[in-house]
Design a protein around this nucleic acid. Structure first.
Lengths: 184, 184
DNA sequence: CTCTAAATTAGTATCTGGTATTAAAGTAAT
DNA sequence: ATTACTTTAATACCAGATACTAATTTAGAG
């Protein structure tokens, strides 16, 4: 019977947890539109540990080192993702991301968050950024929460146009148009 | 009455937890030779959060911090700089910068190197990226050395146009045009 | 359409590491 | 002995799970 839903969902589950290891099972269940038991079953099948163990590992700094998850380098926490359609990620600007004299976030962090999200939207094993046109609307300060929303605006063959808008409390601080290539 | 035992014990408690945030109350109780309730009371008095919250905090702090992008002030090594004119930086692509399945560097590192360099060309206290148009010409692999060259192509008031070309052994892998604002 | 196996959901008991609260001892100084 | 502080105990509750069993849903083959 092997419903295609299962493996797809498990892939998605991986992405969610890779993108944000702080998610509980019930949050994941809600995001995936399945019951909490299914999430646990999937985690078990993928041998992904529970939230608390993941946090322990992250805290120890060993997360992703030995993990079967092969954690990607993510900037921002993934909070919503419909591969092939849209996604949302949140980044809280910390001290290390800022120019220490001004507490303004360095542009490449904002870019990195958007880029990570844009790439993850493309539902293939590997996706690479080809070109991008980006614009920083205003400086972002330490402590602010940047919410990046991305959607695929066009698709042709293996090329995707992804638009990302990043906001701090309804104020747009960044916009970008990314051309992403999907690699088979 | 203020027994000396209490404040001494609380000091010790602080040290224990600072030295190892992974300790449970019962472990601490055992170490301090008091009951678990006393430990909780002490934690409460010192407003030290419970184990799980401590782990969350540690995890939050270290999550992504492993990343070169978060740790380092600068992406790339500056090897030449004439402020207001041109500059060169070199970045050796390390394992952490790549998608581990393919060993291809994630775009935002290449961008970060270029952005850092572009910003540093502008000879003021603070400079911020306004807009950028960038293009990744080919994937960059783990171990390759990326040499980014930047020059100021135009200047008007506090706005600078900086062009960056990044190469791996004479092969252009990235080009970008940055509009940088100088802040007084 | 029915049968069947896989997939999903439900339900219950149990665990850890706590919070929150109330109460009961212990201790030490005046 | 009284008073104030300190410590321990006891109980109810919570989040976020594990572990297990069972029922229900769903898809596909015959």
């Amino acid at each position: 019977m092997k419903s295609p839903g299962k493996s797809k969902r498990q892939e998605l589950l991986c992405k969610y947890i890779e993108g944000n290891p702080f998610l509980t099972d019930s949050e994941l269940a809600h995001m995936l539109g399945v019951s909490i038991q299914t999430v646990r079953l999937d985690r078990w099948g993928l041998s992904i540990p529970e939230l608390r163990k993941r946090l322990r590992e992250v805290a120890r700094g060993s997360y992703g080192q030995v993990s079967a998850l092969q954690k990607e380098e993510w900037i921002g926490d993934l909070v919503d993702l419909e591969p092939g359609r849209q996604g949302v990620s949140i980044l809280e600007v910390s001290e290390e991301m800022t120019l220490n004299s001004t507490k303004v976030a360095r542009g490449h962090y904002i870019f990195a968050q958007a880029n990570c999200l844009a790439v993850s939207l493309v539902n293939t094993k590997v996706a690479l950024t080809g070109t991008a046109k980006i614009s920083f609307k205003r400086p972002v300060y330490c402590g602010e929460k940047v919410i990046a929303r991305a959607f695929i605006s066009r698709k042709k063959d293996n090329k995707f146009i992804v638009r990302v808008t990043s906001k701090v409390q309804d104020e747009t601080i960044f916009q970008g148009k990314f051309l992403i290539f999907a690699i088979a």
